[in-house]
């Protein structure tokens, strides 16, 4: 089995603070981490490898040169190899443009690593929160997709994926090759071992730079190749404290609540 995991280095958004005067994000001192959802995707691949030790796990990330730190982290956890996609012309890409570049990078990596049976992604990155790049890669590569994956098992010709739905859980059978995105499962991903960490420190990662694929159309990536543009950004207003309903009796409170819900078309 040959699995590619797409990962992203993100700022730890739980540690981001807002400048109270300028109302902007304070990015200084915020640690850069492996996107947690990508960690779940890697764990899913690692569990397949636990059962089938012949499995090869390759990771790819797109970002500035310092993003190799997450490739190293992935090798420390379970990955066999990693690739960095990094070019000045790639900057400013929105999700469609990013997925265009990554889909070409994946084809390029397959020239060396062989065809991938599956591409795993995190459901979304915790900085952009879009959950779009995975399905968009699947579209460029014409692969079937399952999103919101929790657990996965290899089957004869593909995978069985347990996925999160609004009304519970679904189990979907999907044929290989395919793309699956993962959300937070009920278990914690494994930590790197000392042995693997030492290995990761020596690992070298190939970079796919601006010109890695001359067939790519520059009109499809970068700031100018992106259909969406950020017009403005601002910090959200502080949430108000909600509404307190406390009538004489419980019944009266319930009636008042019901009236408010009905009046506001909520039920």
């Amino acid at each position: 089995m040959n699995i590619l995991v797409c990962v992203k280095q993100v700022p730890d958004t739980t540690q981001i603070k807002i400048d109270p005067v300028k109302h902007t994000l304070i990015r200084e001192g915020v640690p850069a981490i492996l996107n947690p959802f990508d960690g779940y995707a890697l764990e899913a691949a690692a569990r397949i490898k636990d059962k089938d030790p012949g499995t090869k796990i390759v990771v790819v990330t797109m970002g500035p040169p310092q993003a190799t730190a997450v490739l190293k982290e992935c090798v420390g956890i379970a990955a066999d190899k990693g690739y960095l996609v990094s070019g000045r012309t790639f900057g400013g890409s929105d999700t469609l443009a990013t997925s265009y570049i990554l889909s070409h990078a994946i084809k390029k990596i397959e020239e060396t690593e062989g065809k991938f049976d599956a591409i795993f992604c995190g459901k979304q990155a915790i900085d952009g929160d879009t959950a779009q790049v995975g399905p968009e890669i699947a579209e460029w590569l014409d692969l079937p997709q399952v999103t919101y994956g929790l657990e996965i098992e290899a089957t004869e010709d593909g995978f069985k994926v347990q996925k999160e739905a609004e009304d519970g859980m679904q189990v979907i059978g999907i044929k290989s090759p395919c793309l699956i995105t993962f959300t937070k499962p009920s278990f914690d991903p494994r930590y790197p071992t000392i042995k693997r960490k030492l290995m990761a420190n020596k690992a070298k990662f190939e970079t796919l730079g601006d010109d890695f694929d001359p067939t790519m159309d520059a009109a499809n990536y970068g700031l100018n190749g992106s259909p969406t543009h950020v017009k403005k950004s601002f910090t959200p207003p502080v949430k108000s404290g909600g509404m307190k309903i406390k009538e004489e009796t419980g019944e009266e409170s319930a009636k008042k609540l019901a009236k408010i819900l009905v009046d506001n078309n909520i039920v």
Partner: peptide, 18 residues
């Protein structure tokens, strides 16, 4: 308009030419 960075930031996005 949508939240990003785990709700720490709001961004207004437009798609002018597509």
């Amino acid at each position: 308009t949508r939240p990003a960075f785990g709700g720490n930031l709001m961004a207004t996005i437009m798609c002018p030419d597509h």
